[in-house]
Design a protein around this nucleic acid. Structure first.
Lengths: 305, 305
DNA sequence: GAGCCCGATGCCGAAACGGCATCGGGATCG
DNA sequence: CGATCCCGATGCCGTTTCGGCATCGGGCTC
């Protein structure tokens, strides 16, 4: 028992007005209950019961304490069943609208971690562009959103954020791979592998290309991270992305991520958000806490580097 | 400690993020703290901390539990200090506006009982007629009122009530003393000892006197219970009152109380009331609970007879 | 006055707790 | 790359606490 048994003893005695009756109901000897009550009164310093010939009755101090004990035990029961629900399989699902980059590696890792503790929770992961994520959450099609912080405006609560520097992704042998920083202009000189025709970088990219009088047609346009990785590994060109989604390839040394030198690109951040004024069910609430610590880890690691 | 020490251990570990640090702060061996945490996790059935090389960190279940533990310990501290305040002498006073009858014997007895437990609480007892008691409380000059229930109207909360049958008080040897019931008319035939010129009974009394063509002048008019008792013991006449205020003399056999046969007089009730929507300080709140149990005792005793 | 039920208490074995020493593993620093 | 440090985990043991049993004294009931 997490809570001292004297709490249950006290409550039972208070409710039955008799130490012996309470002891019977608790399946312990009345002497044990009696001693716990005496010890409790000694600790509080005030009699909690008045002794009548027919049993005991709460004093005013006892009544006050009983409120506390009831609240405590009831609240504990609630907490306990909340946690039990999570561990078991009674709890519904957590729906997350997430940027494709974090959906690829980061989020599944978090889901796996969480699932180890709470195997009963189901997940629904939707990949979204920065324009859609907010709407998915606002429309109630997702419980939790992950998006760039600069587009998380009113109506949402930002719970955690972490740096997500944009940069160039290239194969290990690519000329850019050895640089510390690259500018958009640097990238414009190479064949490009782009996610889609219109991403958040597109306007800047177009102007950079136009300024250098280069062809605006990317070498490859694909909406699959896996395909993109293949193309990158084959040195087909330069992709523009955050490092999320490529972490394992970067760690393996096959792909390099070089942050942009432009601050407005290098300083982008991603965050976890939920609708303001919507109370999360217990499953999403627990997972969101898990997510937040993961984000805090990213932020700390990044700060340290 | 009323609450299991594991609560404090858990909170300390959660806040310091380290079992050893927590153990140092708690002045116990780290192994003891560690074991309590392990046992707790075993009971809950879910890890509460993730173990990092640098210490521990709460899981989402742990965070949920921490909220509960914090609430519990904080609330307990509050309850404890409330009770301590009462037992000690830090708490202010309890002001009671009370009908003269209950102020004489009943209320002092309750005050003495209460004072035995909580010697730090001071009292201010005001004797009031039925017209004044409500006003004293409403005006904030008293925290608690005791009055006839039929004049406790809106704006007050009636917390407890008990029968207060009105009747005739006479010396032991008086002709009425042997009767079970008396009517107002019976009394009108004897010299009267009245509290004041205008009490709640006055109109009925006057009409009874007038109907019998008797003198409306009472033999004695006095606003002191002590004086009234002396006059009664000397067989100076009949007093009209509830038995409250004369209990010891009745028990001693010197004075007799004969309830009225008229239901609207015999069925009068007195009650404890407080202003609706005013939060009582802890002292008055505790005393009012004490009072309520005392009233319940009266009601029960009376019902049994 | 006998019997009954109440809480309180002495006694004893069982269980829980805390302290000490130690282990193994990851982080850190020279 | 190894020495060191700090972390949580664990085996061992003395102490404390807890619960069960029997009993006591005091009101209440019949």
């Amino acid at each position: 028992m997490m809570h001292a048994s004297v709490l249950r003893y006290f409550r039972e005695v208070a409710e039955r007005g008799s130490i012996r009756k309470a002891a019977d109901a608790l399946y312990v000897a009345s002497s044990a209950v009696n001693r716990q009550i005496l010890k409790l009164e000694d600790e509080i310093g005030v009699p909690l019961f008045e002794r009548l010939p027919t049993g005991v009755r709460l004093t005013s101090a006892g009544k006050r304490l009983l409120r506390h004990v009831r609240d405590t035990l009831n609240d504990f029961e609630r907490v306990r069943s909340e946690i039990d629900d999570l561990r078991g399989l009674k709890t519904g699902s957590v729906r997350i609208a997430c940027l494709i980059g974090l959906l690829a590696e980061f989020l599944p890792r978090q889901v796996v971690d969480f699932h180890r503790l709470y195997p009963g929770v189901n997940f629904q992961l939707s990949s979204c562009g920065p324009e859609q994520a907010n709407e998915e959450v606002a429309a109630g099609r997702a419980d939790i959103g992950i998006n760039f912080t600069d587009v998380i405006y009113g109506g949402f609560t930002l719970l955690a954020e972490a740096p997500a520097p944009q940069g160039a992704l290239v194969a290990a042998g690519h000329p850019l791979a050895s640089q510390d920083r690259v500018s958009l202009m640097d990238c414009a000189g190479y064949p490009l592998i782009l996610w889609s025709e219109a991403g958040p970088l597109t306007p800047y990219l177009r102007s950079a290309l136009k300024a250098n009088d280069l062809d605006a047609t990317p070498r490859a346009l694909c909406d699959s991270l896996e395909a993109m990785k293949h193309l990158l590994r084959a040195n087909m060109g330069v992709a523009l992305f955050s490092r999320f989604g490529f972490e394992s390839d970067i760690a393996a040394g096959e792909i390099a991520h070089i942050p942009f030198s432009e601050p407005f690109l290098a300083d982008r951040r991603v965050g976890v958000f939920v609708p303001a004024n919507r109370k999360l069910a217990i499953g999403p609430a627990m997972f969101v806490e898990h997510l937040c610590t993961a984000f805090a880890d990213i932020a700390k690691t990044d700060q340290g580097s």
